[in-house]
């Protein structure tokens, strides 16, 4: 279908973009890669009056190193995440997960900022940024603020972004060599979304898991931490059996959806099994 009419501007700077968004209020919408927004417009599920195209803002593209962390510009494409040398070296979880998202043509346009701002519960990156303990940098008319990932996703496809605000970057910690990681994505066909996904990072010390953080995809209306499994994994032996046991607590406190691709019970089962696998891989367990 053909989208309904809208006006379109392409600001030349972040300041101009924020001004255009603030001027447009509730009826203005950011467009970055357009890979989620254009299908919505084509199906006439969204009716913005104004699209503010931030795609040309090259200052928001690319990965930088800051003290102890990496700052990923909101317009960095999913394709770029798969290839970025800083991410590959210090945040392999993000680089590896990016290879599992959509398909090459979509990855060339889709951006990390769009994936997070869209906040689809089946999207892979929200749970990854949550597991990493990342935060989001947001620019608005009042200046810049930083929001922790756990506070950013507020409800089904809803974030703490207000109209007039632009997500400018994602900050994730640099993980040292004692950390391992794994994203387990469960899907039945190529190029499809996760029925359930599990992002795990684990620090290993003396054959044991010293610390683990786990983010779950599609186990509720927002990405959630599997806190019971995290506590169970902390101090556990880095063995497949011990971590399978810790993983069996992954669905505690979650309320997964039931839909055409799986019932809530099926998703709980997947979360338990996949968490055991993700922890074992992250901890290098044999």
């Amino acid at each position: 279908m053909i989208p309904a009419r809208f006006d379109y501007v392409r600001p030349g700077s972040v300041e101009d973009a924020v001004r255009a968004l603030a001027g447009g209020g509730d009826d203005a919408r950011v467009i970055a890669g357009g890979q989620s927004l254009l299908p919505l417009l084509r199906l006439r599920l969204a009716f913005p009056d104004l699209l503010v195209d931030v795609g040309g803002l090259s200052e928001l593209r690319g990965v930088r190193e800051t003290a102890g962390s990496l700052e990923i510009g909101a317009l960095t494409t999913i394709y770029e995440l798969t290839r970025d040398p800083l991410l590959t070296a210090h945040c392999g979880l993000l680089a590896e997960t990016a290879t599992l998202i959509a398909d090459p043509a979509v990855r060339h346009r889709a951006t990390i900022g769009g994936a997070l701002a869209h906040a689809d519960p089946a999207g892979d990156l929200p749970a990854v940024v949550l597991a990493l303990g990342g935060s989001l940098l947001i620019r608005g008319p009042e200046g810049e603020r930083e929001v922790r990932a756990g506070d950013f996703f507020t409800d089904y496809m809803t974030t703490s972004l207000s109209p007039g605000e632009l997500l400018v970057a994602v900050r994730v910690p640099r993980l040292g060599g004692d950390w391992g990681f794994r994203y387990e994505k469960f899907r039945l066909t190529a190029q499809s979304w996760a029925i359930v996904g599990v992002a795990a990072v684990a620090r290993r010390s003396n054959g044991h898991v010293a610390e683990a953080r786990i983010g779950l995809t599609n186990m509720g209306s927002v990405p959630v931490r599997a806190t019971a499994a995290e506590s169970a994994a902390a101090g556990a032996e880095a063995s497949a059996a011990a971590l399978r046991e810790a993983g069996s607590r992954a669905d505690e406190g979650t309320s997964p959806p039931s839909d055409l691709r799986g019932s809530a019970d099926y998703r709980r089962h997947l979360a338990r099994v996949l968490t055991g696998r993700a922890l074992a891989a992250a901890a290098g367990a044999s």
Partner: peptide, 8 residues
């Protein structure tokens, strides 16, 4: 490569 139906 891009999907030209998904670009304005």
């Amino acid at each position: 490569s891009v999907k030209s139906c998904s670009v304005l």
